[in-house]
Amino acid sequence: MLKKVSTIPHQGTPEQAQRLAEVIAKYKHDKSNLMAVMQEAQAIYDYLPIEVQTEIARGMDVPLEKVYGVATFYAQFSLTPKGETHISVCLGTACYVKGSGDIYDRLQEELGIGGDECTPDRKFSLTACRCIGACGLAPVLTVNDEVYGRLTADDVPGIIAKYN
């Protein structure tokens, strides 16, 4: 899948930078540790913006293109930040036939962002996911760790309002 690259300016804290430096120091003796570093970096920052990938490339002494190639190949890596509230809509088969596509569209419309994007104020982010194993509740979405089921598109503004 083509990955979206966030246009929201990266805001890292000195504490995060310190943690990333420690991760790189731990792994830099072997370049084949690149994926482990990227996974831990994503755990620190929630996503891998160019600034973080550049630090990884510099620290691990690997080309930036190599880091980016890995980041865009594996679904586990994200190039967009997560918002305070992260909404994930199930587009698995059961949810999809029950209309989760409409819910996903409506969320994009209400939030003013596309899929795999974050609002500029970093309050909301939106992704689609595959089956989360709650087909009995289809169509479902999750907001952070909460699950909402048996939804229609008209439920969307209410859910957003709860977190705004």
Binding site: K3, I50, Q53, P63, L64, K66, Y68, T72, F73
Partner: peptide
């Protein structure tokens, strides 16, 4: 050694390009 070209994305979206799809002139 410079490795400014690589394969980005996967499947039908795979393309040969540069980090963050920047133009070659920025690498």
């Amino acid at each position: 050694y410079v490795s400014v070209i690589g394969a980005n994305n996967r499947g039908i979206d795979t393309c040969i390009g540069h980090p963050f799809d920047m133009p070659l002139g920025d690498t």
